[in-house]
Structure formats: C-alpha cells, structure tokens
Design a protein around this nucleic acid. Structure first.
Length: 407
DNA sequence: AGCCTTTGACCAGCG
DNA sequence: TCGCTGGTCAAAGGC
C-alpha cells in the first residue's frame, strides 16, 4: 500500500496561504515552546487549502453566533434529516461548496466572537434570549467571579470537504497534529469528525477510543469520527515524547489504521490516518459507542433531563456542545428545511462549569435554536419570504448540556 | 459473551 | 550479522 504523509511538517506554501491557517494557527508551536513548560505539540502544518477566507461566508463584526439563532430551522432529527452533508442527499456542487465555505467561516466565528485573542478558550455568554428568569440573571451577574467558562477545544481545519478532495487525490494518509485542551474532569472532550463526509480527517478526541489514560468505562470515549476503532498496539517511538497508539478500524475487511500520540494529560499531539474507509460509518449501537449520535429528540430530551442534576458539592457541571450547521431550503415542495450539522469539531466542544448554590433555584436553561425557531418554521405561509430569508444561514445550536453529577 | 485495552514479544526494514 | 526502530501480533484481563 502506498502510504505517504500528508500535511506533514510544513510546507512553506501552506504557511503563506491565508487559508491554511486555521490549523496552523491553532497549532501550538513546539519548536519554540521548549521553555514554556506547557504542552508541546509537533507542528504539522496543513496541506494547501483550496479555500480562502474571503471566499467564505463571513460573519459581520459585532454579530455573535447567537444571532444565527434567528435562522429558521427544522431540527426534529438532525441525524436523520437528509442533507448535503449527511450523505443522504446527493449534493449539488454549489451546495457542497457552500458547505465547505460555511465550515470555514463557522470555525472562524467560533473563536472570534468569544475571544479573538485566544482561540483556545472563550467565555460562554448566555444568549440573551435564553429563557432565564430575571432572578437567574441576577444570580448570574453576582457570580461573575465564577463565571461560566468553556474550554474551547480547537481542531484542525483541514477537515473541510474541499481539503478532503484534494487530499484524497494524492494520498490516503493524513497526518495532523491537534492541540486539544481537554476538560480535565471529563474524558470526553471530543470533537467529532464526520468521516463519511470528510473521509480521512484526523480528529483528536474524535478518533479517540478509550485510551489507556482514559478512565475506562467512564463517559463517552468513543470513536467520534463515526467509525469504530480497536487498539492493537502501543509503542514509545524514539524522538516522540509520548507513546504512540495504534488503532485499526473494526469494520470487516477495512484496513484503515490510525496512529496517534497522546500526552500524559490526555492531549492529543499527533494523529496519523492510514488508508481510506471503503464502507459507511456504522450505525451507533449504543450511546457513546460510535460518534455518540442519537436522534435529535432523544439526545435533547436526555440532556434536558440532566440539567437539574448536581453533584454532592452543590457544583453543577454542565457540558455544552455547540453545533454549527447550514440551513438549506432544499425542497420547497415538501416545505422543509434541511439543517446540516457541519461537524462539531469545527465549532468546538466545551465544558461549562457553573456553580450553583444547593438551595438556589437558578438553573441554566439551554440556549437552543430549535425552541425559538420551530414556530417560525411552522409559519402559515410555506413560501413566505420570512421562511426563506436565510437562504443559507449558519446556525449555532447550543445542544444543551450534560451533567456529570451522579444521579 | 463479546469487544476492548494492555503489554510484552515478534517481525521487518534499515544502516 | 547485529542492533535499532517502528509496526504488528496475540494472550490476558477488564468492562
């Protein structure tokens, strides 16, 4: 099998490209961080990216992701909904392109509105339209000292569809390094890569099966790229600070392998994919088993029900997962929008830890797009301009939270 | 029972 | 041939 490392260190051309970027800018620079004492990562610049910032949908200054919640959305079942990126619809080229562009800009929007200076972390600012009671707001203000924070997990951008096609043409091996700021209290800091859409795109946690440094059996430590992987070896490679783990795709006759290096604190420092899946992603057989995908209704209700949980210390830990998607008025005949999740990894996965007094009645209500917008979708006039005013809109969804407190 | 991780041993390529 | 290295195998054990 011809194998070749793509996106390996640093092609100068990529570093000069403004679009190349994302991944590069999110990489921790290893070479110069020897004295930092922090996590060190191999610098693996992305391959040349065919997309450029200017070509993409851009988010005007001052516009927060929450603004996109104005977009109409049909989100009864995100997973099942046919859409250009779920693979259940044949995607017109134009639409495909817009997905790729939106992907990029969405990523940009993810970091910028929260903290442009530090793409790795941002503060979570509850949406003003959230159904938080005034008392809750007061409490929220009073607790600024323990402000809700989300550790934002950055991932490489070379997982755009455009990149995929370029990569697929030249090699079936992808190597990338991803700095991942994992939530220390949860093994499931994960970003997800739609591997079926993006084929072989590395994802830190994403592809992370239960690693040896994970707490086995605790939390979703699954193959977040949608495929199932089995670890078949681990080796400490010379020159590498951390051991390298070897994984195989568990699908019969699938020869795809992936390697990744993981630091002691759980951070993924390098991922290498070898081969290409010649099979669709397996259906998740159980929660967290593969890609932690459940039906939208099921997942939401599950997370909603968990919102009120607290641990023994009165600490309430919420895990908020951001989704970013594109809405396509794909089929006017059936009066339906198709919401396509662009991949959570583009948007980040964050942990929000929020302290709530045991006796407090304050509960944080999730900022959901679907709640606000379903009514809009149910507009009487199926062809109203209002309905389709956002022909292609980026939508941010805060898909509720997961509480890790013991029930 | 099945699937997974762990881990030492084994194998192949290379200088 | 030998030693080194990266990759893989497979038994054992956990979940």
């Amino acid at each position: 099998m011809e194998e070749q490392i793509l996106a390996s260190s640093s092609s100068s051309s990529s570093s000069s490209s403004s679009s190349a970027v994302a991944a590069a800018t999110m990489q921790h620079d290893l070479s110069g961080s020897a004295g930092s004492g922090g996590a060190r990562y191999k610098l693996v610049a992305p391959a040349k990216l065919p997309i450029s910032r200017s070509d993409c949908i851009t988010i005007p200054p001052g516009l927060s992701p929450s603004s996109f919640l104005e977009s109409p959305v049909l989100l009864s079942d995100v997973k099942a909904e046919p859409s250009p990126t779920t693979g259940s619809l044949i995607k017109p080229q134009a639409v495909h392109a817009s997905v790729a562009c939106s992907t990029y800009s969405a990523t940009t929007a993810c970091s910028n509105p929260f903290d442009e200076r530090n793409p790795s972390t941002f503060e979570f600012r509850p949406h003003p339209r959230s159904n938080m009671a005034p008392a809750d707001l007061d409490q929220q203000r009073s607790e600024q000292s323990r402000q809700i924070q989300i550790q934002y997990q950055t991932v490489s951008f070379n997982s755009s569809a455009s990149v995929k096609s370029e990569m697929a043409g030249s090699s079936n091996v992808l190597s990338l390094s991803v700095p991942v700021h994992t939530a220390t209290s949860m093994s499931s800091s994960h970003a997800e890569v739609d591997a079926e859409e993006l084929n072989q795109i590395g994802n830190p946690n994403g592809g992370m099966p239960s690693g040896q440094s994970d707490h086995r059996g605790v939390g979703p430590v699954s193959s977040e790229d949608g495929y199932n992987w089995r670890k078949y070896g681990q080796k400490h490679v010379k020159g590498c600070e951390f051991p390298r783990s070897y994984y195989k795709c568990t699908h019969p006759n699938c020869e795809v392998k992936k390697l990744f290096e993981r630091s002691h604190d759980g951070q993924i420092t390098e991922i290498i994919y070898k081969g290409t899946h010649d099979h669709p992603k397996p259906q998740p057989s159980r929660r967290y088993s593969s890609g932690n995908i459940m039906s939208g209704q099921e997942e939401r209700s599950d997370k909603i029900s968990s919102l009120n949980g607290r641990d023994g210390k009165g600490q309430k830990t919420l895990y908020i997962q951001f989704y970013c998607g594109v809405i396509f008025p794909f089929d006017l005949r059936i009066n339906a929008f198709f919401f396509t999740i662009l991949d959570k990894s583009y948007c980040g996965y964050g942990q929000m830890a929020h302290s709530i007094e045991p006796n407090s009645t304050a509960d944080i209500s999730p900022v959901t797009a679907n709640d606000d917008n379903l009514d809009e979708v149910e507009d009487d006039d199926p062809f109203s301009k209002r309905r389709y005013r956002h022909y292609v809109s980026i939508l941010w969804i805060c898909l509720l939270a997961k509480d890790t407190s013991k029930q």
